[in-house]
Design a protein around this nucleic acid. Structure first.
Lengths: 188, 188
DNA sequence: CATTAAACGGAGACAGTCCCCGCTTTCTGT
DNA sequence: ACAGAAAGCGGGGACTGTCTCCGTTTAATG
């Protein structure tokens, strides 16, 4: 996975700069921030940007992997604090909040749970699916979650909840309620 | 609501042509189809397009109002065929299928249930909310739907289900199942 | 150092959005 | 029927963003 030959010093430096600039720009202007502008912020030519990150997706992913890893770790942390059923819901809540607060993370997580994505994005997806899998498995074992649910289903539904909440107010104010409706069902 | 002075004949003609071209283009290339290209297809200058439809949203709406009206009518049709609880679900299913099959309709319906949209989009939204309101009210009266649900909540959640299904396979194959999970809840 | 291959950068081709304003067409009153 | 007014047309062009190509620079290596 790692490069055979280590990266050249200037390449590594530019890579880091781009990442920093990208995170800033995405946070500021959303996932459609101008790529040439990101290159400019980083003080490199646009060619350099496109060499390191061939697609917007690739850059988006690289800029937010740490966030995703944090979410994955958070899963186990929560699992230690709460009973399995509640832990899953709480984690999904945090995932939803993340996708709404950090503009750009949503797109990335979305394609991470999409069938037939690129290899790079798949790595992200696997990480999330594994984290979800642990919580889902525990809740199912406990008997508080339907046994026919796959981790990826849960992630996709959470993504749907994010979307619904976003429609409601652009902030995350409705996440808790919509997540509750999902877990409890729409019947009285 | 109608113009004080009726539209000039050429204006009306161009308006219709644009609408037809737009529906084609959106269906073919998705909601981001080139607007200048739509103008070209319609055989008018781009200035004419932008005069009639100041924003992409406006054009999108105009091109798909009939679809939305059809969905609204479908609500009452289904209400006559099925008991209230089932009718709501079936209608939501058809709404979801529509948003996935007809590229562009999803964005429109999305902004129709968003707080703080333009007046024009609001008209669309009101129509859908009214239709949903009738089904939701009936189901609540029957006792098969939580009484604390607003029609707009249901529409937003349906939108979320569409998003989740889209992630799954790009087609609508998962809609039924995800809709069932929403109505039944995630518990066993 | 000298060599060499990796990496850089930014000009420029291309595509999309949207406005501006001189020209054309329709409508109106006589 | 026709002249004048006003509504409407259209496409040129400014602007922004994407992405590639290739001559130049720079780090690594013996």
């Amino acid at each position: 996975m790692t490069q055979v030959r280590p990266m050249r010093a200037d390449a590594r430096r530019n890579y880091e700069r781009l990442l920093k600039a990208a995170a800033e720009a995405f946070a500021e202007h959303g996932e459609n921030a101008s790529l040439d502008d990101i290159a400019k912020r980083a003080g490199v030519g646009s060619g350099t940007l496109y060499r390191h990150f061939p697609t917007r997706q690739a850059l988006l992913e690289a800029a937010y992997v740490d966030r995703i890893e944090a979410l994955g770790l958070r899963a186990d942390e929560i699992a230690r604090e709460l009973p399995p059923g509640e832990a899953l819901i709480e984690w999904l809540y945090e995932v939803c909040v993340g996708t709404i607060e950090v503009r750009g993370l949503k797109t990335l997580l979305g394609s991470a749970v999409t069938d037939g994505s690129s290899a790079a994005v798949t790595a992200c997806g696997t990480f999330m699916k594994d984290a979800a899998g642990r919580l889902v498995g525990a809740a199912q074992k406990e008997g508080t979650l339907r046994p026919d649910l796959e981790p990826v289903d849960v992630l996709r539904l959470a993504h749907g909840i994010s979307t619904a909440s976003e429609l409601a107010d652009g902030r995350g104010a409705h996440i808790r309620r919509y997540l509750l409706l999902l877990t409890e069902g729409l019947r009285p």
